[in-house]
């Protein structure tokens, strides 16, 4: 099995899917000869041509609205939003329109479209190249939202998104693109949307997390072994629908839940995971459901000390683990 980075897995998955199905097209800013600003589509215009790899005008509402139009007319578009922070002009077409196509037409129309969005911080991106925007989409019935954190999951979940008959938002943490490497089988496979995965089994407590924070949580779990704390790490992978059974099973088994996220905590994914655990595991818990996230300030300051103070880190997670384990 070849080792790949997340960005390589994304690129090869799009390439393989486009070879398999010629109704798949790519739309986005700079996705053509530039290959996308993160090089997710590097070389694809050479193989598939300008009709299938479309450098769009700088206008996110039309990127997503046009993608939706092609989707209801027989194509399977993959739209790329250059940075999550720039998805706002397209919210109307995604949250407002695409999410309700099937429901609002009594099933007469469907929108098999994928929207890939690099998100997240810790890259000195300041207020407008660091945002986590998952909650907007995860709140919306009619959308699915996946957030793969490893090359293996990036391939399997992107393939599922592209093959889905409904709109799927694929959130790729931009810091993981080149940072995270892993084995990726060359043959095609899919990972079902809505399935979490235990990335590290443990018995004392469970960390529920996703995205870049998965890797920080795994590091913290490793550090906790020094204090003989055995931490389980559950990667949510899909943020809508959340894998409620997997969440409840793990929380009930270890009896302690620590939810870690990079997004600001108020009204967020961690709120929802906490609610699920509260509803389903109340009598199995040995400690308070605990959340670790950044402070409630606009994500995230550009200057380096403040950015570091904003971001959760393996050390901050370890501190939360230790505190919860002692209870």
């Amino acid at each position: 099995m070849p080792e790949q980075t997340v960005i390589e897995a994304v690129r090869e998955t799009m390439q393989a899917e486009m070879r398999r199905d010629d109704s798949i097209i790519l739309l986005g800013e700079d996705v053509g000869s530039r290959g996308g600003v993160f090089l997710a589509s590097d070389g694809l215009i050479d193989e598939f041509g300008e009709n299938r790899v479309i450098d769009t005008p700088l206008a996110e509402s039309s990127i997503c609205g046009v993608a939706l139009g092609t989707a209801v007319n027989g194509m399977r578009p993959i739209a790329e939003i250059q940075f999550a922070d720039f998805v706002w002009p397209a919210i109307n077409q995604l949250v407002g329109e695409a999410s309700k196509v099937r429901y609002g037409t009594g099933g007469a129309k469907t929108a098999p479209m994928t929207v890939r969005i690099p998100y997240g911080g810790g890259v000195r991106g300041g207020l407008y190249h660091s945002q986590s925007i998952e909650v907007l989409f995860a709140h919306t019935p009619g959308l699915s939202v996946v957030a793969p954190a490893t090359p293996y999951d990036a391939k399997g979940l992107l393939a599922s998104a592209i093959r889905s008959d409904d709109p799927v938002i694929v959130l790729e943490h931009k810091r993981t693109y080149r940072l995270v490497k892993g084995d990726v089988p060359t043959e095609e496979y899919t990972i079902p949307i809505g399935k979490a995965e235990i990335k590290r089994p443990g018995t004392d407590l469970t960390i529920f997390t996703y995205g870049l924070m998965l890797h920080y949580a795994l590091q913290a779990a490793e550090m906790a072994t020094a204090a003989e704390i055995d931490v389980e790490v559950l990667d949510l992978r899909t943020l809508r629908p959340l894998d409620e059974d997997a969440i409840a099973e793990s929380a009930s088994r270890t009896g302690k839940a620590l939810i870690v996220q990079e997004d600001t905590p108020a009204v967020s994914i961690s709120s929802e995971v906490a609610a699920i655990i509260g509803e389903r595991c109340f009598f199995d818990l040995d400690g308070p459901i605990t959340r670790l996230g950044p402070p409630e300030i606009p994500p995230m300051p550009f200057s380096p000390l403040q950015e570091a103070a904003f971001m959760p880190s393996p050390e901050k997670i370890l501190a939360a683990i230790t505190k919860l384990a002692e209870i």
Partner: peptide
């Protein structure tokens, strides 16, 4: 350079913001 006395945004933002 995102320095302390940055006058536009106290270095919360990118340069020129």
């Amino acid at each position: 350079l995102a320095k302390e006395t940055e006058p536009m945004s106290a270095a919360k933002q990118f340069p020129l913001h």
